[in-house]
Write a protein that binds this DNA or RNA. Sequence first.
DNA 1: GACAAAGTCAAACGACCGTTTTATTCTGTC
DNA 2: GACAGAATAAAACGGTCGTTTGACTTTGTC
Lengths: 237, 237
Amino acid sequence: MCLNLGPEIALKPLAPNPSSALDVNQRLLDAAEAVFAEKGFDAAGIREITSQAGCNVAAINYHFGNKENLYREVFRRRLRHLRDLRIQAIDRVMNQGDPPPTLERLCSEFARVFLEPLVNRQDNRALMNLFCRELHDRHLGRELLLNEIILPVQDRFGQALRHLCPRMTRDEAILSVHCFASQLLHLTHVTELMLNRHDLGLEDPRVDRAVEHIVRFTVAGMRTFCGDDHPWPAHTC
Amino acid sequence: MCLNLGPEIALKPLAPNPSSALDVNQRLLDAAEAVFAEKGFDAAGIREITSQAGCNVAAINYHFGNKENLYREVFRRRLRHLRDLRIQAIDRVMNQGDPPPTLERLCSEFARVFLEPLVNRQDNRALMNLFCRELHDRHLGRELLLNEIILPVQDRFGQALRHLCPRMTRDEAILSVHCFASQLLHLTHVTELMLNRHDLGLEDPRVDRAVEHIVRFTVAGMRTFCGDDHPWPAHTC
DNA sequence: GACAAAGTCAAACGACCGTTTTATTCTGTC
DNA sequence: GACAGAATAAAACGGTCGTTTGACTTTGTC
């Protein structure tokens, strides 16, 4: 039997950590974003976050009060970034006058910006997954998601739609935006689940092919609310 | 200071629990479904499940091996039920000959069956939320969701679409099914988040109004892949 | 009644969790 | 250099978790 010698004598770090050029606050946000994105709120442990940030567990409570506040700050930072990207994309299309804006250009450009962080890097994809998780299993109030991204983008996109289709009502515009966004969101899930696999039904399981489909599908759906009163050709189905 | 008397003497139940008419296996599945739906996999504790089922914690490991297997059985049972409901709805529309089937009838009937368990009862809504959570934060393999519900429904709906629109390709049909389903899924989330509230942008935030919009939007989107080659009237947007 | 298997139970187990405590180090000011 | 306050660290705290153990009860069979 051996004596309990108590905790080992701590070794001081030999030199200031090179990553400590950024202060602990920022390193915690970065590490938390990565771990939360990979595992979700519940499964992400603060010890994993702090070890990745190179600091002590107590730092989370010192700088952010608790784990949930850290989670909220991670969200706030990223949501504002995504919101700005999307609103800028809408404005870019609508303010360009030379080839006048169309529904196709508006939707395809929005889809491109919406999906860009997803297609390019794997960690961004995990982050998108985190936002979707928050839709279902909410740890923050609904106000954060609504106020930081959903309502601002919905309003700006809705205005653009009604500018292109003046006879579309306000409700029709808002609902159409959600129809479009829901397809783009769904694509971010199905991508991992069944796109890029040739054994699950699709002959051409490429993501860009699916995006083309969604844009064409969506533009046609929106046009039924444009109020053109000349009757369409009789359809066969 | 009082002595530690150890655990209290256990009282046997006075009479066989009335709910024990169903065997423990079924009671566990029912209780687990309710608790998982309310809290999700991680937050649902086996002690809450077993207390609601009126049995001991060890019963889960005795009957199902572990918590994850119990979760899987809950899923299997419900997914097959939902799958059958949806496929039957498709077949009902397609096999009815007197008023020949149309895209409108197919989509509106599918939407009705898809959303019915959600609109009617609050616990069903929680269950739908659980399925969506599993899309993002997967505790089971992708095979269960794919094989039990996604692929069967996608195939049957795709066949129906191509029967109504023979010039639609197989890929176009499958992608169109996903476009439609994604909007219905999204509605189940947004309903809690912003529908039924008059302060968030919509003048008419009723769910049935949104369903009407989705069906009209979707039918128009699908028709662009029907291959009618007579040109559409020039659109103004 | 004897026996074995199945079922159920209270209790303990070991691991991990988020948070707090307490002490020490760093940093800027006088 | 002395001091105050901010920042960081190790360790402990109290709790919950899923799982396992071992004893007891029930059930079916001979």
